[in-house]
């Protein structure tokens, strides 16, 4: 059994991430307590809410600093959607918000195609299709995968972030989450 913390932003849906983890046999809790974030096998920053309210909550609870400290120790963190975007230095969302800053780079509103970008799209070079629902996209030197020209996965040190929702991406998403759990 794995111990996973799904970080609580104070608003939004963490239920689906936890259900997917349970499906894979991992035990999880929802918390923003710095002590809990430090002492666990895997931390997941889920993709819920808006950038400003999420960062306000992470800053005021001490969770943002706990995530930086955890990153320094090399302990794994997975960011999903907004959770990936918040790990960068800055987002244009909500008039401009500073992120946690684990990775360099910034988040900008998408200008091509229909926005929000909603639906399933193939991720290269992995080959599988995953579910996306986003209006902003990461611009980051640590990109490791793209979808239709958008950076959709970033990796630096012990942080891995994805723009898609693995918990909403059927068997491909579950297989991805399983890989995230396996080194734990």
């Amino acid at each position: 059994m794995n111990d996973v913390v799904v970080v609580d932003y104070g608003a939004g849906n963490t239920r689906s991430v936890r259900a997917a983890l349970a499906h894979l046999g991992a035990t999880s809790v929802v918390s923003c307590d710095p002590a809990v974030i430090t002492d666990v096998d895997l931390v997941i920053l889920p993709g819920v809410g808006s950038a400003r309210s999420a960062m306000d909550h992470l800053d005021s609870t001490g969770a943002a600093q706990a995530l930086r400290d955890r990153f320094e120790t090399g302990a794994p963190i997975l960011g999903i959607c907004l959770g990936m975007q918040l790990a960068l230095e800055h987002s244009d969302e909500d008039g401009g918000v500073d992120g946690i800053g684990l990775l360099s780079g910034s988040v900008h509103r998408m200008t091509e195609g229909r926005v929000p970008r909603l639906g399933w799209a193939t991720v290269e070079p992995w080959g599988d299709a995953y579910y996306f629902a986003h209006s902003y996209a990461a611009h980051c030197p640590d990109g490791v995968a793209t979808s239709e020209g958008v950076t959709v996965a970033v990796e630096r040190g012990s942080f891995f972030g994805v723009q898609f929702h693995p918990e909403k991406s059927g068997t491909a998403g579950l297989a991805f989450l399983e890989r995230c759990l396996s080194p734990v």
Binding site: N13, S16, A19, Y131, A133, K168, G170, T171
Partner: peptide, 29 residues
Amino acid sequence: ADVLEIPFTVGGGVRSVEDAIRIIESGAD
């Protein structure tokens, strides 16, 4: 939400922000 691994939308009866909060925080996308 506990069994579905694809997104879902809920309509009908959403008349306030509170209704939306209740539905989204119960697991709807």
